[in-house]
Amino acid sequence: MPTNPQEIFGRYIHAGALTRDADALAELFTPDGVYESPFIPDGRIFPRRLAGREEIRAGMAAYYAHPADSGGVVDTARSRFVLHTTADPDVFIAEIDTVVVAPDATTTTMSLVQIFRISDGRIALLRDYFDPSTVD
């Protein structure tokens, strides 16, 4: 199991944004882990709050089943992130700028902040702060 922020974040990005693998994503969480997106209004395709590994698996699988609106692809070479450790060794913050290239070659950048709370190498709480208009 990963033990440092870089490993945990790397696995999270691979399972979520890059491969959209709900099973792999859910396995990164503790059995009672919580994934929250506080800026998402209720009733949207992207879930506002998922509690428990199985709810995370089902909720993200349902979201991933919808095609991305733009049909764009993440440009990993131009995207960037900075991880910030905190005074609490179980908490780190990810500051992210994701570059997406649309089929017509135009690019957009989605900036977001994620706060991770870790327990025994797994995500116990992830709070994901981003513009809700970017997901549905």
Rank of each mutant, 00 (worst) to 15 (best):
Y12F: 11
I56D: 01
D88V: 05
V113T: 12
D104Q: 10
R49F: 14
D136I: 01
D131K: 04
L50A: 13
S37A: 15
R127G: 06
H66G: 04
L28T: 08
I45C: 04
V100R: 04
S111R: 13
T86H: 07
F116N: 05
M60W: 11
A24N: 07
E54K: 13
Q6N: 10
L125H: 12
Y64A: 14
D32Q: 12
R122Q: 06
P67L: 09
A15L: 06
P47G: 13
G72F: 06
R117W: 00
P2F: 12
I123R: 04
Y63Q: 00
H66Y: 09
T107R: 11
Q114N: 10
D69Q: 12
G33N: 10
T76S: 10
F29S: 03
S37P: 00
P2K: 07
N4V: 02
P38G: 12
R78M: 10
A26F: 09
I56R: 11
P38D: 11
P132I: 02
D21C: 08
L28A: 08
R57A: 11
R122C: 02
A58I: 06
L125A: 08
Y129M: 09
A102T: 14
D75P: 02
V101W: 03
I93A: 00
L125I: 09
Y64P: 01
S133K: 01
R44M: 10
H84K: 06
F130N: 04
M110F: 07
I13F: 11
F29Y: 14
R20L: 11
V135F: 07
S37W: 15
D23C: 06
T109C: 04
L28S: 12
S111N: 10
H66A: 06
F39T: 15
G72K: 04
G72E: 12
F29L: 02
G59S: 05
M110P: 00
P103H: 09
A105T: 15
I13L: 05
Q6P: 15
D90R: 14
I118Q: 07
Y35L: 12
T19I: 09
G52P: 15
R57N: 08
I123H: 02
T134I: 00
I40C: 08
G43A: 14
D69Y: 03
A124V: 08
R127D: 10
P5F: 02
A65M: 05
G59P: 04
R49Y: 14
T107F: 03
D131W: 11
H84E: 03
T134G: 08
A68D: 09
A77W: 15
A94Y: 12
F92S: 14
S111I: 01
T107M: 05
